[in-house]
Design a protein around this nucleic acid. Structure first.
Lengths: 185, 185
DNA sequence: GAGCCAAAAGCAAAATAATTGCGTTACGCC
DNA sequence: GGCGTAACGCAATTATTTTGCTTTTGGCTC
């Protein structure tokens, strides 16, 4: 991986594309390293040497798919921005594919770096929202508070607790977090 | 697994014991299904048929090890009970073996039931603490509030965010949660 | 822009692991 | 005490993973 371009990059993209294609065509359960390799036009040993095993490869692909595609929408107010973002985040993560990506991202992650990238994605989005609000002169909570009080409960429930969650749960978390900012009255 | 006793139970215990022994002797990375089977005095196909693959077996063992061994200590006050429990919970989960069990428990969990058992363990402990406090006549938060505001942030950071956490972080979460109970002044 | 070095990929054989069909054992139940 | 069946053992088959060696090729220096 010390070589960012050329054949290495082509192989990486080809293998990732093969995983994505086979996931939709045959389902994740059907994936094997030899199968992915054949589809990518690569020998299995290439995958084993670069990714270690199937799980790490799937984790790599999953993290990529969890990366936000755009900065969070700007509605001109902290509360609205956070609510909208939290609802959308929850919806994406709680959807069947979202859950699958999250699971894969965690499962093939020997040192926690993949999981770290996932939380960094969320933290970046939160930072953007908070920075914009601060620029407007709004009083903003600390980013860690948002991660602890809004992101963590949603993801914890998603990963550890059975049962559904809906958008109102996300809104409630935002509400509770922001109301903590107001001086008591 | 529909047979709770007899040979089935002996095989299960023998396999679990083999996993635990080999984990300490050789390290988790060295484990394979045939190795575990040999140590347990069982044929590999037995393991494959009962657990599916190595990961599910390791997840099964890990969940077992995450089960609390005793109810939380009773110090006569909600705040102290929660603080003590949260500190100890964090310490156990953040330790290298704790992290490894947590990782294994999640990794070999196709349908989320193992993760569900983990959170149920924590929820049980919390329920005991809250019920005792309520019996004393103390004002107690909802169990879900405790899970969302205390357990979720710790586990989220543990699983997703790099870097250490110490006991004071756990205390701070308890503090913030309980102070939310007090009427504003 | 030619040549060199080393990282990454290909290839193929060998080792290891996973699957499966079939016979046997032994719970749980009547 | 005997029956039915779930779980296990065994062994052959199949698939995957590992590994040593060779070839390709990206990046760097001169």
């Amino acid at each position: 991986m010390t070589r960012p371009g050329g054949r290495s990059a082509r192989v990486q993209e080809s293998v990732h594309a093969a995983v994505r294609a086979l996931e939709t065509e045959q389902g994740r359960a059907a994936l094997t390293v030899p199968l992915v390799a054949a589809r990518a036009g690569v020998t299995p040993s290439t995958i084993y040497r670069r990714w270690g095993d199937l799980q790490e490869l799937l984790s790599d692909v999953a993290v990529e798919r969890l990366r936000p595609e755009a900065p969070p929408a700007d509605h001109g107010a902290l509360r609205t921005d956070l609510e909208t973002w939290a609802e959308q985040f929850l919806e994406e993560m709680a959807s069947p594919p979202g859950r699958a990506y999250l699971r894969d991202a965690l499962a093939g992650d020997p040192d926690g770096s993949h999981a770290g990238r996932c939380s960094a994605y969320a933290a970046e989005q939160v930072d953007v929202i908070l920075a914009r609000a601060a620029d407007r002169g709004e009083q903003v909570p600390d980013a860690d508070i948002v991660m602890d009080h809004i992101v963590a409960p949603m993801i914890y429930r998603l990963v550890f607790r059975p049962g559904p969650m809906d958008a109102s749960y996300a809104r409630g978390l935002v509400e509770a977090t922001l109301s903590g900012l107001m001086p008591p009255h």
